[in-house]
Nucleic acid binder design. Structure first.
Lengths: 192, 192, 192, 192
DNA sequence: TATGAATGAGAATTCATTCAT
DNA sequence: AATGAATGAATTCTCATTCAT
């Protein structure tokens, strides 16, 4: 059984997805979590803390998931990128990508708390870039890609995947072709 | 002199940057715009309309700016990409990129209004992709790039520029190297 | 017509008398003042400020009243003391005596705000002691009293009047005799 | 070892002194008493009962203390008044004087409970006036004072002591002279 | 047109009280 | 007996919106 804190954070996440950050209320969170309103305050000092802790919690879960799935079962390079994309789809759907984005500056509540969140994001980015590097390592071994001159390429790779997947999932762009092979093709070019 | 409507929208933008969407109030907007609170309601039906109209307004300004700058003075391919990056920096700093992002789903207020905003975004994306295509046309003429098999590449290009610039501007990533040459190098690879 | 701030303070005073400090609510204050709840917050930052400002305001009114009445129409010594008692009855009934009492330390909200209130009380005490001195001056001229060796006597005099009147008004003590002549007699003894 | 009930009442007293009545919470009482919150409700029906019982309990202790100390060791009149003053200082410091004061009408919670408290106060006043009478009896025997025409004088005497001591202890008045001899002098005058 | 005082619905937060352990 | 997690009613406070001027 999940503990109450996680229940509250999950409820908050799911409500943010439904109503946006400006529409998030503690009453709704309590209802969604099927607990009393007062109970929320036994676990969190204030509403903003729920937001920021939920972001950090979701972020951690996602990065762990990404880490586990991307390189599971000794994939070849193409499979590893596909896994990365699949994981990205999950993450986007769970809305945690929000916290990867510095748009959280805008979505968030105040600058101080945002700083704390940004630090967490940066910490997790290190892990993500490490995953990207391992994926590219496979590509290098296969002769498909090269080692990039700067780690920034890994960053561009992960951003390409996440931004494309996000806009595809959310319908901002309508794409007629199969995304995965195309993104793989682009990946190979980026690391060429 | 700007008209009142623009004054209000600019005030809203600047406040969103400072306090986030959850912290946006009509009182603050009126103060920032140095007009009366009641006057705001002479120009906008409700607070959410300010948000959405400001987004659309800013978006339009930005895309126009992008269109004008990127291809000004018959640039070569590298210069055109550099111009695109410069314009992206401006756009990011003005926070309008928010509306490009489907995170606005999360930042926004309700799903119906979001649909309207998304349609505007899609319309502008067409313009942006057109700009990207024109830029690449220059690359093709120089022999630096090829015509991509799918327009999605233009989309990936613009996302690469915007996401990298955004995170650089906002400090989520610290980059030791000079961004422009590196992004140009990646552009050439993407379109190879 | 009284201004809104005074309306709110009067409402608060009257409710404190009815329900005590622990029972004071902003909703009740708004209802009593026949204004909207939000309006209260246009005039006061928070509930505690209403309490402290009302105390200071009431205190000032009372001291002014005391000053005006006690020595009105060139009274003889007995009449001056009687006037003082009459004014004390008014003050006690209006509940402002609360703020004379350091019990406000207990009734109040926090130590910092209490300090501010105490300073106001001390300031007004100076005025009150001045009134007492003037009253005694009349007694001296009549040969009824003497100048006390210390001003503390004035203080004891005013406390005697206020505490006796308070407990008589509130019914803590039941007194069979006519209070005024008795208190006058005691006054003469104190200043003998 | 004190029993739980007394522990709770002492905790409440000490918290009222710190935070005022409006700031008194059952949680704080439980913490201060180092017992569980639920345990408080094993000994008291509700929060207000703690307040009123604590008042009565403290009052009883004080009056007993006053009774014991004032006339201990066959004091002369001056010594008896000094003892009374010393005891008053103790009582003021323990904050129970609050319940002597009809300001408790304001500090308290509701009128019914206040009636009960007032009855207790009146009962104890009888004892106090008895003590004052005994003290004055000594004065009469010494030829220093006379029997007052009304018992109200005892009341005025005790009020003079308590109000002066209270405001001295709490700092509302700053007194340069030694309080005890002065109050004794006044006492003799009152009973002259 | 422009204003900002007034409002009250609704949000955040507190806390007395209960009850399962 | 003792506890403290859970609760929701009640409270403080906010702020979008209105409307008289």
């Amino acid at each position: 059984m999940k503990n109450k804190k996680q229940l509250i954070m999950n409820a908050a996440m799911s409500l943010i997805e439904k109503n946006g950050i400006a529409g998030l209320t503690v009453s709704d969170i309590a209802n969604e979590a099927k607990i009393g309103k007062g109970t929320v305050y036994e676990y969190f000092k204030c509403k903003e803390d729920i937001f920021y802790e939920a972001m950090e919690y979701g972020l951690e879960l996602c990065v762990k998931d990404l880490e586990k799935k991307a390189l599971a079962n000794h994939p070849d390079h193409r499979k590893a990128v596909y896994n990365f994309i699949d994981s990205a789809v999950e993450i986007i759907k769970s809305q945690v990508f929000l916290s990867f984005s510095t748009d959280s500056k805008i979505c968030g509540f105040d600058k101080d708390s945002f700083e704390k969140l940004r630090n967490t994001v940066q910490k997790h980015y290190v892990t993500i870039l490490g995953i990207c590097e391992k994926i590219n390592q496979i590509g290098i071994e296969e002769g498909a890609t090269k080692k990039p001159s700067y780690p920034l390429t890994h960053f561009i790779f992960s951003n390409m995947i996440f931004s494309t997947v996000m806009q595809s999932v959310n319908g901002t762009i309508q794409i007629g072709i199969d995304l995965k092979p195309y993104l793989y093709e682009m990946t190979v070019k980026l690391y060429s």
